[in-house]
């Protein structure tokens, strides 16, 4: 799924975001990435989504070499990713259902199937009663769930959630974490970043990556793979 060999990312202003990253993530893995704000978590996710290029080293995501990838392959790659952005990136003035369906419209689903998957995803995140609500009127937590529904409805191979718990209280944050982990299966890898280490302290299964000043330390616990 993801293979990094000596990958570094240095921004144009000279800031080193990631140093010499070596990593191998298999399909079906659940990966938690922790580290303080500004440690390089989001930069790592940007590399995976093709928003940034590795400065050095070789990074392969779903068989695509990211330093050589072209525009159409980036689109294809992103179509296989279910992203949950830190700031949600929902489309204002549209309903929850429209937002979820928007992520699927260009993936070739027939209209009925698309509608069915979107409704199912909103049910899975507990928002069946908010299907027709404008996202402008939803709470922070509800918007977060719509963003998750949009990610999972696409049937992606890789779910990437960047700080999905944000400023939620611990109970709601745990619920969001558990919800995301529940979508992991044999074909779907889930990567979650968080600066709140206490949310993953009790987890007994998964790959735990700690990023500090661009340096990674990796620990695998339990049955990392499904």
């Amino acid at each position: 799924m993801i293979e990094a060999k000596n990958v570094s990312l240095v921004y144009e202003n000279g800031t080193v975001a990631l140093r010499d990253v070596n990593l191998h993530i298999e399909p079906g893995e659940i990966v938690y990435i922790t580290g303080p704000s500004g440690s390089g978590k989001t930069s790592f996710l940007k590399l995976l989504m093709g928003i940034e290029y590795p400065t050095t080293g070789r990074l392969k995501v779903m068989k695509q070499t990211m330093s050589k990838i072209n525009a159409s392959n980036i689109r294809r790659l992103r179509q296989n990713i279910g992203p949950v952005f830190q700031e949600f990136k929902l489309i204002r003035g549209r309903t929850a259902l429209e937002n979820v369906m928007l992520g699927m419209r260009f993936l070739g689903f027939p209209p009925k199937k698309m509608h069915e998957y979107a409704v199912e995803a909103l049910k899975n995140v507990g928002l069946e009663h908010k299907i027709s609500s404008l996202v402008d009127n939803l709470s922070w937590g509800e918007s977060q769930r719509v963003a998750i529904a949009r990610a999972i409805a696409r049937r992606p191979s890789l779910i990437i959630a960047d700080e999905p718990t944000g400023n939620l209280d611990i109970d709601n944050a745990m619920n969001i974490m558990d919800l995301l982990v529940s979508f992991r299966d044999q074909n779907t890898t889930v990567i979650i970043t968080t600066h709140a280490t206490h949310l993953i302290e009790g987890k007994e299964e998964g790959t735990f990556i700690r990023i500090d000043n661009g340096n990674l330390s990796i620990e695998r616990k339990g049955e990392a793979l499904v």
């Binding site: 989504m49 928003i51 980036i74 689109r75 294809r76 790659l77 992103r78 179509q79 296989n80 990713i81 992203p83 952005f85 990136k89 489309i91 928007l102 992520g103 419209r105 260009f106």
Partner: peptide
């Protein structure tokens, strides 16, 4: 621009 940027991040083709 925000909506367009989101669509690009979701992998929407340019004609779409």
């Amino acid at each position: 621009r925000d909506q367009i940027n989101t669509l690009k991040l979701l992998g929407a083709p340019q004609p779409f």
